[in-house]
Every structure is written in structure tokens, then in C-alpha cells.
Write a protein that binds this DNA or RNA. Structure first.
Lengths: 190, 190
DNA sequence: CCGGGCCTGTACCGATCGGTACAGAGATTC
DNA sequence: GAATCTCTGTACCGATCGGTACAGGCCCGG
């Protein structure tokens, strides 16, 4: 379908193709068709081929999360607000469960090893940034780490089951449950 | 490596290959090598090709979960015990987070649509059986449904993040947190 | 000893895979 | 206006894809 109008839209469009078809399933023919580019152009912009395309996509995703979620979690003077913003940003980014997490999908597949460092870094940064915010919001450090792990896990799981059951609302319900758990932990005292 | 000794070991061995490489990544050459069979034998046992292989694998998985987890959840006269047994069975089946859920991996990929009914049925049966057990254990029906959805989601998410972070212990920690939440709900009164 | 299943390996098929080579279009620069 | 540089489409490469055809090995009942 639609050609990518601008060059800067190339990576997001690539991300969408990888999200929908996975790394192995996204053939160069398919990518070219979706981006409106022939192989010549593809290899001009990404001399490293598919591997570089995927690497650039992972890079862009990590940069987006870092700027929009992880940094606020670490630096916002109001950590509770940053936590709530994270949940809202998750709902927006994953299109309320209609979109899949590319990094999570890569983690389950055979490509995991090829991009191990980036995949690991993405989840570790998310977990650590959230734990930091929870601690700053008054939770015990140990409890914060536990809860942060729980939160990232719940979001990933919700993307899996929402996709499996074709039930996008499941994602919203999970975020609500998760929000309640996070709020409870952030209250300075029970 | 090792050839599958008996014919009955074919499907479990197939499942392992699909788990490790995904549907698209599991080529017939790879499958043949892992099962110690040539294409002739492969197509003799599975005339429908890869599609039938995957279908038989999903069938076998669903049958195992039905017998070992879902039915006990629905029928065990001691539902609380069945819930605890489910957590233990999950830990065993997924090798404490070292193994991935094939159904979940399929759900995230492009193959989802091809096996939509089976994937949907697997997760729906799990959720509904667990909700049934929780209700029988004294929880409110609405809370049971919520908690059951939460549990299946948490387990799937833990498999994603454990694989991503190469941290199998994350799976056990998630099961412990989940167990605590389930136990709390099963107490007849707070 | 022999005929006929069941099961197997192998050669082969057209299609598609990721990747390369290259010639030319279009704009820009002097 | 000629040279240059960026970007593009297309033809082509060997390898591999899923799948088919088929001949023969094995083992059985007769």
C-alpha cells in the first residue's frame, strides 16, 4: 500500500511491518511493497540489509520509550504522576492492546539471540526506571523492584493474551488492575 | 540431533522445534534433522505438511493442559488445591521459565490468524477453568473472572520477560506473587 | 519364497528467499 | 551545460523454501 512519504517515516513504517509479520516473516519483497521502495532504495538506506533495518527499528523504539517513559519515571519531580503517565503512554503506544510489542515478539522468537543486548536493555531499562519512580514515591526499594517487574510482566502478558483472544479490552482491564496495585504501593503509609 | 525413537514422540519433538524457532523459522530441513526423518517420512506422517504438523502440536498441547490443569480446576472437589496444583504444573511445564509458550508465541506472530480458533480456545479454556475454581473456592464470580484473566496474563508475560532478560528466576517470582494474590482471593472472608 | 502393505531416502519442482550489480533518473553545483 | 551526487528500479545471483514423485527397503501374512 501507501508509500512512505518522507524518508524519516521509513523506520516507523518498518517497525509496523516487523510488528505484524515478525523478523523472519517480513520479507524484503513485503517490506519494499509496504514502504513503496524497491530493493535498490532499501539497500541504499540500510546497507546492512534486514539486520540493519531491525536494529534501527529497535533503536528507535528504545529511544522513544527512553524519552517518553523512562526518563520521566526517573526524573519527574512528581514520581506518582510519572507512573500514571507511563500507564497512559502504554495504552496509547500499544493502541489499547491492538498493537503488539515488537521487542516482546522478538524475545519469544529465534531472533532473540541476534538482538539479545538490545532486547535485554529495553526491558531492564523499563523495569529499573519504574522501580526508581516507585521508590521515590515512597515505596520500599525491595517492594518497588518487585512491583516494577510485575508491572512490565503484566503489560507484556496482556499484549499476548489480548492478541490471542482478539480482545483488545483485556489490555485496558489489565492496566486498570495494575494501576490500582501501583497506587496502593505509592501511598506513603497503608 | 537425536532421532525420535518412537512414532509417538514425534509430536512432542515437533513442538520443541516450533517453540524454539517459531512456525516460519522451523523449516522442513530443520524439522527433518531434529526428528531424524527425511521429507518422505515427514509427509507420510503429516500429509498436510507444516500446517498439519503445527495443528497436531497445538492439539496435543491443548489436550495436555485440558487433562492436567483445566479439568482439575473445574472438577477437583478441593478447588484451592487445584489452583495450587496449576501453579506447580505451570512451573514444571514451562521449565521454570526456560521454556516458552508455543501458543503465546504463535499469538504474537503472523501465524495467529491461521490457527486463531485453537489459540483462542486454549487461552479461553485456561481463563474460564481457573475462574471456575476460584468461584468454587469462595471468591465472588466477578472477582474470579478478573483474577483468572490476571493470572493467565501474568504467566504469559513472565514467559516473555524471562526470555527477554534471560532470567528464568523471574518466572518463579511471578508465580509466587500470583500465588499470593490467588490465595488471598480464596480466603472465604478477608 | 513371495506379494503387498508401511515407511523411508532422494531427486526434483517452481517459487521465493536475502543480497548484489548496475544503469539511469533527478536534482544540484560549478 | 557538463560533471557530480543521491536515490531509484530492475535484472540477476546462489541458496533455500514447502511440497511432490517415486523407487526401493523393511517386515509382515500367506
Amino acid at each position: 500500500m501507501g508509500a512512505a512519504a518522507s524518508r524519516d517515516d521509513l523506520v516507523p513504517a518498518l517497525a509496523e511491518v516487523f510488528r505484524e509479520h515478525g523478523f523472519e516473516g517480513a520479507s524484503l519483497a513485503l517490506i519494499g511493497a509496504r514502504l513503496g521502495l524497491g530493493k535498490g532504495s532499501l539497500y541504499h538506506h540500510f546497507p546492512g540489509g534486514k539486520e540493519e533495518m531491525a536494529a534501527r527499528v529497535l533503536e528507535a523504539i528504545e529511544a522513544w520509550f527512553e524519552a517518553e517513559m523512562f526518563r520521566p519515571l526517573r526524573e519527574d519531580p512528581d514520581p506518582a504522576r510519572a507512573v500514571r503517565a507511563m500507564l497512559a503512554a502504554s495504552d496509547a503506544y500499544f493502541r489499547s492492546g491492538r498493537r503488539v510489542c515488537l521487542v516482546g515478539a522478538f524475545a519469544l522468537g529465534a531472533v532473540r539471540d541476534r538482538f539479545a543486548r538490545r532486547i535485554d536493555a529495553y526491558f531492564a531499562a523499563w523495569r529499573d526506571a519504574l522501580a526508581d519512580a516507585l521508590t521515590r514515591a515512597g515505596a520500599e526499594p525491595a517492594a518497588s523492584r518487585d512491583l516494577a517487574e510485575d508491572a512490565v510482566t503484566a503489560i507484556q502478558g496482556a499484549l499476548v493474551t489480548a492478541s490471542a483472544l482478539q480482545d483488545p479490552e483485556l489490555f485496558g482491564r489489565t492496566l486498570r488492575r495494575l494501576g490500582a496495585r501501583l497506587e496502593a504501593a505509592m501511598k506513603p503509609a497503608a
